[in-house]
Nucleic acid binder design. Structure first.
Length: 586
RNA sequence: GGGCUCGUGGCUUAGCCAGGAUAUAGCGUCGGGCUUCUAACCCGAAUGCCGGGGGUUCGAAUCCUCCCGGGCCCGCCA
């Protein structure tokens, strides 16, 4: 068994390994030819683990899967089974072989959570990951499309950390492109409303400027001139760009912080102009012989990577593009980490493929790209430029207000401070959960009615289960069953936990580590979000059917308290991975 | 026009990559449950040609193919 700090890790996986060993031995002794890599298992409602092995092997003999399944199970040796201490019963049902966990599996799970506490569920992966997400242009506030990027990226970073990786999260700030030139021009023409949140002040003038440009194309000449000045290092122009960008970023940061989204670093594109890295990248691409002139612009041929169209890496006016600066950014990141992960919207599918191809052409490490499909409005797609968007702040505020109404209705006697705190936890949690639970490859249409009708069996449901567990534990401290040293290793005899709801909850808790592992490996956080809900579901059923505080038998009471503690801990750890606060009371 | 992607009960959605046991769950609807640890809870019921056709297979929501519908993209925006 794999041991880390004295404990068997990945209990579910170890269970699976034991089952595999037992079944292979049985199949071989029954006269079948089977290799380890051919074994496949599924989690099933009929058992803790099931296999369709008989379907694969039937051709070797009878051709009857049910007969094959029975033959294999009959051939299981008692000795093998004795060594597999996590495996309980193995039965057949027609062609299926159903496997159940042992009592030791259950008691070990509870003991593990009780001793590991907030570290329960952590993985053993290693390596440094640089994760980039959100990176919205600093030309206005975040809108509901950006929220999906931020929540997906932030949840991913939390899950990867839980899986054991060293993760650094970056926001790539476009402080130098055409859009920022427009912002800078706008800020010089129109006064900024300093009363407003700074990102809103910026977008006001940005939208006006774009209206001007639509009417008068000659403004574009001013914009181009500004871009050239910046690339040539003109101090005054750079300062005006930086001033506008700082305002927008300040506002964006405030919004991100409100929804528990954390970035370790804000990296500015301009640094790759200043350092000359951009021109260096262009030179090296040019040296590959894959570039050519196209109407004065420099383009690179990526046809050998499957891209029909060439990629422009330098404008005909000599300035660089986002794509070029992004190449420099990735070259800068590569030596700092083992893996790079970028979270982009669906509009970046093509360009991110070209980016990867160009990096390959240069012989560089390439990023893994996580794509999420668009969030649009009933009337069409959102556009900061046209001023058509619903801001993240607006959505978050309304979600918090909605949550406040609920808590005010349910706990009117509580303090204003309590209600506000819970409203924020629930409002933000609901927003995050509703977004993260859906697979990122589904496009969605935003509408207020659906957004504000936050599903009760979403974040609030999970948070409520946590609050109920906390409540029981608080009362057990008050009645003295839990001493001042709390619940730790060896607190109770867990073989007393034999109710079906107890076993179901323990089994659900035991799968935590595997779900983290799978979610981290596939970079699909929604699968973990669904697990978190199932975990809360198991707890709610346990809570309904199994009394804890008014149990006479003190040993049984202590065993159940330990399970409540294990449930609370698992739920808290799951919520933490989702960036959702776990209230002690709500 | 070409490429990518999605299409699962009234609505939202899991499962699809590695095909198999009555297709997952929530909302909504209908019915039941608080003198018992917080009812933002629990239990039960109804609702599905898994977009459509064809194919592969003993077996297809899952693989292949064509079609229909939504989304995104198709060089000097990001």
């Amino acid at each position: 068994m794999t041991q880390i700090q004295g404990r068997v890790i990945f209990l579910f996986i170890e269970f699976k390994n034991q089952v595999q060993k037992v079944l292979i031995a049985a199949a071989v002794s029954a006269g079948y030819d089977i290799k380890e890599e051919e074994m496949s298992f599924e989690v099933s409602e009929h058992a803790d683990l099931a296999t369709r092995l008989a379907f694969q092997l039937m051709a070797q003999k009878s051709g009857n899967p049910a007969a094959t399944a029975k033959e294999i199970v009959d051939a299981i040796s008692a000795d093998e089974l004795k060594n597999a201490d996590l495996v309980g019963k193995i039965t057949t049902q027609g062609p299926y072989i159903n496997i159940f966990v042992s009592d030791k599996y259950l008691t070990t799970t509870v003991e593990n959570v009780v001793s590991e506490k907030e570290n329960y569920g952590s993985g053993k992966n290693t390596g440094k990951i640089l994760l980039e997400h959100t990176s919205a242009n600093p030309n206005g506030p975040l809108h509901v499309g950006h929220i999906r990027n931020a929540i997906l990226g932030d949840t991913l970073s939390r899950i990867l950390k839980k899986a054991g990786y060293d993760v650094e999260v970056q926001y790539y700030v476009n402080d130098i492109g055409r859009q920022i030139a427009v912002v800078s021009w706008a800020a010089s023409k129109y006064p900024l409303d300093m009363e407003k949140k700074p990102d809103y002040a910026i977008v006001d003038v940005y939208v006006k400027a774009n209206e001007d440009i639509a009417k008068d194309e000659t403004i574009n000449e001013h914009i181009e001139a500004l871009m050239k000045k910046v690339e040539n290092g003109d101090k005054e122009t750079i300062e005006s760009f930086t001033g506008a960008v700082d305002m927008a970023v300040a506002g964006i940061s405030e919004t991100l912080l409100l929804m528990n989204v954390k970035h370790d670093k804000f990296v500015r594109e301009s640094q790759f102009i200043e350092s000359g890295a951009v021109w260096d990248v262009i030179d090296r691409l040019d040296a590959t012989g894959k570039t050519k002139d196209s109407d004065g612009a420099l383009v690179v041929d990526l046809s050998e990577y499957g891209f029909e169209k060439t990629l422009v890496i330098r404008r005909s006016n000599g300035t660089s593009l986002y794509t070029t600066r992004d190449l420099a950014y990735h070259e800068w990141k590569a030596p700092q980490c083992d893996r790079m992960i970028d979270v982009f919207g669906a509009d970046h599918k093509l360009i991110s493929g070209q980016l990867r191809a160009a990096l390959q052409l240069l012989g560089d490490k390439t990023p893994e790209v996580v794509i999420f499909e668009f969030v649009s409005l009933p009337e069409g797609s959102m556009s900061t430029r046209r001023g058509v968007f619903i801001t993240a702040d607006d959505l978050l505020k309304q979600m918090i207000d909605k949550a406040y109404e609920e808590i005010d209705k349910r706990r009117p006697e509580e303090s204003e401070e309590f209600k506000k705190k819970v409203a924020r936890m629930v409002g933000i949690g609901s927003t995050r959960y509703d977004i993260i639970k859906v697979s990122s490859d589904k496009s969605t249409v935003f509408d207020w009615k659906t957004a504000l009708d936050f599903e009760k069996q979403g974040a609030p449901f999970i948070q409520y289960a946590h609050a109920r567990a906390s409540n029981i534990l608080t009362k057990a401290v008050e009645d003295g069953t839990i001493g001042s040293d709390g619940i730790g290793p060896g607190f109770a005899n867990y073989t007393r936990l034999i109710e079906p709801q107890e076993a179901a909850l323990i089994k659900k808790i035991a799968r935590f580590e595997q779900l983290i592992e799978e979610s981290a490996a596939s970079l699909k956080p929604h699968t973990f979000a669904i697990y978190a809900r199932e975990l809360a579901d198991s707890f709610s059923q346990f809570y309904r059917y199994v009394p804890v505080l008014n149990v006479e038998d003190i040993e049984l009471k202590k065993a159940r308290l330990a399970l409540v503690y294990a449930g609370k801990t698992a739920i808290a750890n799951a919520l933490s991975c989702l960036g959702i606060d776990a209230p002690e009371s709500m």
